[in-house]
Design a binder for these strands. Structure first.
Lengths: 230, 230
DNA sequence: CGTGCCATTGAGTCAATTCAACTTAAGTGG
DNA sequence: CCACTTAAGTTGAATTGACTCAATGGCACG
């Protein structure tokens, strides 16, 4: 069980960081947001904060986590470029969102989204799909945490990360999170994550050129480790 | 890691078991469903089945689970009387639903719900709230599986079950699921669940008059075990 | 060229699992 | 109603996977 301090400096207030209008043609929500920047390790919102904004990642990555009162941490999700987060909530955020590295976000005011959700079918569908996707992801995550071994968890993690990858080369995975983050996502310790990485490396399944890059040299083998048949 | 056979007999077809109209005043969806019965251990729907119906539990209990290819099982949720399930899906169910005991359900045809969701704001809110609740529950479940000890998991489980309890006496918990089901929900083995129950019993926190009943003799202590402060 | 953070590796420990009885409860048929 | 059968639950002993603690290595940044 891990317990570790999270830097608790807060980023400058949202209003102060809003820089301009977003111009994203794809989404029905596109033109409604304002751009915001957060530096590495800064808290975007904390569990229990009033849910005033929802966000979409433009660049960088965000960790969404829950903390136990004694400091044990469970990371629920990593939001990568293109992902929405903080959209699913009632009056209070149920998760803490922190910048893994320097991030650029589009912020949507809650009231606006609610209103649009009522009026516009496309927006409604988009938010609904997002919610469904998050639930689906959380349920798959449950299987990993509840029933997979340490090696399977680490392999699963990189299979999923590879699938979400926006690199030209699908086998080159950008790893914006630290080993500790991975451990807290997978319900392991940092050392165990590390050993499993070494294991995958020595079986020629992956290569680790540096701490923020994983090269999958044998994707089939990695999948096999992640999802053993029998 | 558990592997165990699940009785794979299927219940009689839905059409054959539909018995009449439901009369539930509370919900906006109330009058749209048809009643269905399923016997203990029968599959209501399986992972990958086309999602034709959604359900609400009237009596009995349902387990919602995912299975790995080698038979390891993770139970995602238990649906108790009053709970909806199977409402969140795309074209295919992402979970398997099985009757824990003899259950009575209201079935809602998918197309109907979709249509109503567009037309009726109240229905939309109801389904949306349901989805949000499921996501919230799954995320809390992640913390339990990722970061809690065996004893904490079992204590958490009964704290949650007590909160959902419809008994007059909140400290008397009806336990419709087997020890194996609890183990598969908590990511433990049946033996570990059993030992933790014995431990809670010998610390005078709970009493176990029979396998389907738990008496919480010290709720404060049970909560303390489930959520240690420091 | 230090200083500090993060990652890696090793050794020993412990919690939870596996394996193997054994007990209890719940039918089922004579 | 009781012997028989089967499923579910409990307990003990041995094993193991993941953790803790501790030391070392590597890189980035001032």
């Amino acid at each position: 069980m891990s317990a570790h301090a999270i830097p608790s400096q807060y980023s400058p207030s949202l209003a102060a960081t809003i820089a301009g209008r977003a111009t994203q043609p794809r989404s029905a929500l596109a033109s409604l947001g304002a751009i915001a920047h957060f530096n590495r390790n800064h808290t975007i919102f904390a569990e229990g904060d009033p849910a005033e904004y929802s966000y979409k990642v433009l660049t960088g990555a965000v960790r969404l986590s829950k903390m136990m009162s004694d400091g044990r941490r469970q990371i629920v999700e990593f939001a990568l470029p293109g992902d929405f987060f903080g959209i699913n909530w009632l009056d209070e955020h149920a998760l803490t969102a922190e910048a893994l590295n320097d991030v650029t976000l589009i912020c949507y005011a809650r009231g606006r989204i609610d209103r649009l959700c009522d009026e516009n079918r496309a927006v409604r569908e988009e938010i609904f799909d997002n919610l469904r996707h998050d639930l689906w992801a959380a349920q798959n995550h449950l299987v990993i945490l509840g029933r997979q071994s340490a090696l399977e968890r680490v392999a699963s993690f990189f299979v999923h990360l590879a699938a979400r990858n926006r690199m030209n080369d699908k086998s080159k995975i950008d790893v914006p999170m630290t080993r500790q983050d991975i451990a807290d996502y997978l319900g392991l310790t940092i050392e165990t994550v590390c050993r499993m990485l070494t294991k995958l490396k020595s079986s020629a399944t992956i290569d680790i050129p540096n701490r923020h890059t994983i090269l999958v040299s044998n994707m089939a083998a990695l999948r096999r480790v992640a999802q053993p048949d029998e």
